[in-house]
Simulated assay, not measured.
Amino acid sequence: MRIGELARRAGVSPRALRYYEQQGLIRARRTANGYREYSEADLKLVTEIRSLLTVGFTLEDAKPFVACLRAGHESGADCPESVEVYRRKLAEIDDEIRALLVRRAEVAGQLSTACPGCVLTKQEKT
């Protein structure tokens, strides 16, 4: 399939596909007239990349998942390198949550100081 069809089926722009190609995540074959040509396997790669990006992974994070799929695995998560990326990302998210909880407590404290008589709503208390 050509780049436009892959873009439409994957729900991305042709520009994004060219960028993924520049980053080494997908590889287009070239026809005699120079058009990019993609396969169903490329659609699976792009779908994997998009699903990872949607939940906060970077293109760099996606590389082990793409390599895993290229190696013939059914899922990009079937390889130890991908599992390690999941673990690292979860640790990053946990760190972000802890930092947000600290910031939240600081802002709630500042609100209490600024407005001693104010009653915090249930949402503000948690």
Rank of each mutant, 00 (worst) to 15 (best):
M1H: 01
M1C: 05
M1K: 02
I3M: 05
A7L: 14
R8Q: 11
R9D: 03
A10Q: 02
A10F: 05
G11E: 06
G11P: 03
G11W: 00
V12Q: 02
V12C: 01
R15M: 12
A16P: 04
A16H: 02
L17F: 05
Q23Y: 04
Q23P: 12
L25S: 00
R27T: 14
R27G: 10
R27M: 10
A32I: 12
A32Y: 11
R36N: 12
R36E: 08
R36F: 04
Y38N: 02
Y38R: 03
D42C: 07
K44W: 11
L45W: 01
L45Q: 01
E48M: 14
E48I: 08
I49V: 09
I49M: 05
S51Q: 14
L52D: 11
L53A: 10
T54M: 12
T54I: 12
E60Q: 01
D61M: 05
K63A: 15
V66C: 09
A67S: 10
C68G: 07
C68Y: 02
G72N: 01
E74D: 13
S75K: 10
A77S: 14
D78Y: 07
C79G: 04
E81G: 01
S82R: 00
E84T: 05
E84R: 01
E84Q: 08
R87T: 11
R87W: 06
R87K: 12
R88M: 05
K89T: 06
K89W: 13
K89I: 07
A91N: 11
A91K: 14
E92Y: 11
E92W: 06
E92F: 07
R98W: 00
R98G: 02
A99W: 06
L101I: 02
V102P: 05
V102T: 13
V102S: 10
R104T: 06
A105Q: 09
A105M: 06
E106S: 09
E106H: 08
A108S: 12
A108L: 02
A108C: 10
L111I: 15
T113Q: 14
T113I: 14
G117C: 08
L120W: 08
T121K: 09
K122T: 15
K122Y: 13
K122F: 14
K122V: 15
E124R: 09
E124S: 12
K125V: 15
K125H: 08
T126H: 14
T126D: 15
